[in-house]
Design a protein around this nucleic acid. Structure first.
Lengths: 181, 181
DNA sequence: AAGGATTGTCAACAAGTGTTGACTTCACAT
DNA sequence: ATGTGAAGTCAACACTTGTTGACAATCCTT
């Protein structure tokens, strides 16, 4: 009993790292079991299927909890996260890549949309004041994710040499503009 | 000679549609040749490989030419594009999906980054005034792509019921803020 | 019309995919 | 100690992937 739990957790850990950085379709079961050091058949045994394993990795989403705590802290955290260069070991960066990669995945798109809507956009809207909190939350997310997209994925040279402080100020400015307009 | 050209074009057309909407890794050679109504072996014959076919589809990028014409028109067009709901048949939407899908692809990421940098970010920066045009162009792209991301990919409910005019005004406001800060 | 090149078809390949079932190994209660 | 169930191993399955080479069909030139 307790033996199976540890193997499950080894699988979950490896699966999360791989799925989150490379996307559902680009990761094979053997990639995961290879990293976890277990047999490939155990995925079907313990999680039913590859998809079951993927969905199990979604049940632990640590970064979002912190991000949706309260609006001010959310702004600071998100802006801070963006200001840093891309770090493949950072949890928030991996979660970001994970969202992008899998929302575009033909098999996982719908699942990810619902997860983002219910787990991030809705809680954030609840914290954002104003007349139309859902709309403002969406625009705020647009600014933050757009910035992260350019910085961490497209890696535009226009942002490469810019000091961290300058970037932070710019994103904060745009984020506040998104909330107040 | 002329026969081969038409089959090449049929392949290119089908390849572009499939690659741009579903991503490089998610599209098989047989998917494309099936839609084009030709044999799968002709991909290797005419384009060397699947990757060759993909790169051939990159040489025609109609939407970006218009978008990078001049900054004002770019703003109008981009904001207009965003304001519309997601349309899987629209060229600009497909190009957007294409960029997102393939920049995250482990095999195509580097190619797409260079393409975006040289084909979009750099020309746009040349049109954008100010002291640091590259930086401002990057922030402008962050706003536009972030908005499109929330609207067309994540499909947040907070943006679903909003009138087109309101969205257009908001994005325009943020875009101008990105250029002027 | 004959010959040579271009174009298209077909089958097969080696490798990789997710998943399954039979088997062995092990731990623990009786 | 023995039997029962869980845990892990192994080989194989049916399928899809990109690519290749041999073959047939078609076209154009001479």
């Amino acid at each position: 009993m307790t033996k199976a739990v540890t193997t499950k957790q080894k699988l979950l850990q490896a699966a999360r790292r791989q799925f989150w950085t490379r996307g559902y379709s680009n990761v094979s079961v053997r990639d995961i079991t290879g990293e976890a050091g277990v047999d490939a058949a155990l995925v079907s045994r313990y999680f039913g299927s590859k998809q079951g394993l993927f969905e199990a990795t979604l049940e632990v989403l640590p970064p979002w909890d912190a991000l949706t705590a309260d609006p001010d802290r959310f702004l600071d955290l998100a802006v801070e996260t963006f200001s840093q260069p891309y770090d493949p070991d950072a949890d928030t960066d991996n979660a970001f890549t994970m969202l992008l990669t899998n929302i575009l995945d033909p098999e996982m798109g719908e699942t990810m949309r619902n997860h983002f809507q219910d787990g991030i956009a809705a809680p954030l809207a609840a914290k954002v004041g104003g007349e139309k909190p859902e709309q403002h939350a969406a625009m705020l997310l647009a600014v933050l994710f757009g910035a992260a997209l350019m910085r961490k994925q497209f890696r535009l040279s226009g942002l490469a040499g810019v000091p961290t402080e300058t970037l932070r100020a710019q994103v904060l400015h745009l984020a506040q503009a998104a909330l107040r307009f």
